[in-house]
């Protein structure tokens, strides 16, 4: 029996996300009295693979097959399902990000395994296997029993603390044959932004709403964000107006994020916005309206005009760095 964790790399490097996943899998293995097997797809060198052992992986299976360069949900699910069967996996741990959402449902059908999606804590108990999961866009959390023999848990990004429990993991390079009939995604073009802090990965996010009044006012917000090493985000009206790109929209129908610190500037805090950010560890609000609902979600607030406050915040961070 084992807990199988699907890790993701970025041009051969693991991100924090993968260490969270392995730490979580280690926690589940502790509850179920099993070991952790990590699966990596892509070209990752041995030094990098070994890192997974630092977070509790007992065994690492590395698959670097050219046919798996791009994500095909059917091909990936078929490869991972084979590994899960060989490893006698009782629980699969996968990220609740775009890749995980593409693969987990297919694995669920292949393995007849119920999914606990978007978990942020270890299971409540293992008999019956009960997980704590986000529902109603964060307005309620469900206790969900998974009745199948194999369970799939998809972990919300940034929601589980990394813990180092060094293990001398064994590495196995696995050659797989990918059946062309299940690998039909053709990628014509790839556009990647480089050098930008990705919203889903960011520890700190600075976000602007309609209260910023004009796209011309974003300079000071961006300056504040870069002084903190933060990613920038925005509310829905701002992206709908075209003031900021759509991929910055955080909220129910945009990105759902859980940074350590979310700073909402000129955002009133409608339910739909809070649905995307309520898992942030700390929320700071800057708004002219003292009755704005964002202050009910925030731990720190300033009632004031963003245009006046922002330059002073930038100065304060600069002072700090001196």
């Amino acid at each position: 029996m084992s807990v199988l964790v699907f890790t993701e790399n970025w041009d051969g490097q693991f991100k924090k996300l993968s260490f969270e996943l392995v730490s979580y899998a280690k926690g589940v293995a502790g509850m179920t009295g099993t070991t952790v097997t990590a699966v990596s797809i892509g070209k990752v060198n041995e030094t990098e693979l070994k890192k997974l052992g630092n977070y509790g992986a007992d065994k690492i299976i590395s698959i670097s097959n050219d046919q798996l360069t791009y994500l095909d949900s059917q091909a990936y699910a078929s490869v991972i399902a084979d590994v899960a069967r060989n490893e006698n996996a009782s629980v699969l741990v996968i990220s609740n990000n775009n890749t995980g959402k593409a693969i987990a449902p297919r694995l669920s059908v292949k393995l007849k395994a119920g999914i606990g999606s978007g978990v942020s804590k270890l299971p409540i108990k293992t008999d019956p296997f009960t997980v704590y999961k986000r529902t109603y866009s964060g307005n309620a959390f469900a206790h969900m029993v998974i009745n199948s023999d194999i369970k799939i848990l998809t972990l919300a990004q940034n929601s589980f603390d990394i813990s180092e429990t060094p293990n001398n993991a064994t590495i196995e390079n696995l050659n797989v044959i990918v059946d062309g009939s299940v690998n039909k995604t053709a990628v014509r073009d790839v556009q990647k932004q480089s050098g930008k802090i990705l919203l889903n990965d960011a520890d700190i996010v600075v976000s602007g709403g309609r209260g910023m009044k004009s796209p011309d006012n974003w300079g000071s917000l961006i300056e504040f964000a870069s002084s903190l090493g933060a990613a920038t985000a925005c509310s829905r009206p701002v992206s709908d107006e075209g003031w900021r790109p759509h991929d910055e929209h955080t909220g129910q129908t945009g990105k759902i994020i859980a940074p350590n610190l979310y700073i909402a500037i000129g955002i009133s805090g409608a339910t739909q916005h809070l649905a995307g950010i309520s898992s942030s560890k700390y929320i700071v609000a800057i708004n002219t309206d003292k009755d704005a609902p964002i202050f009910e979600a925030a731990q720190y607030g300033i009632v004031g005009d963003a245009m006046k406050v922002l330059p002073e915040l930038v100065n304060a961070v600069k002072e700090l760095k001196k």
Partner: peptide, 8 residues
């Protein structure tokens, strides 16, 4: 995709 887009 993480940090970008693909045309497929």
């Amino acid at each position: 995709i993480d940090g970008g887009k693909e045309e497929v």
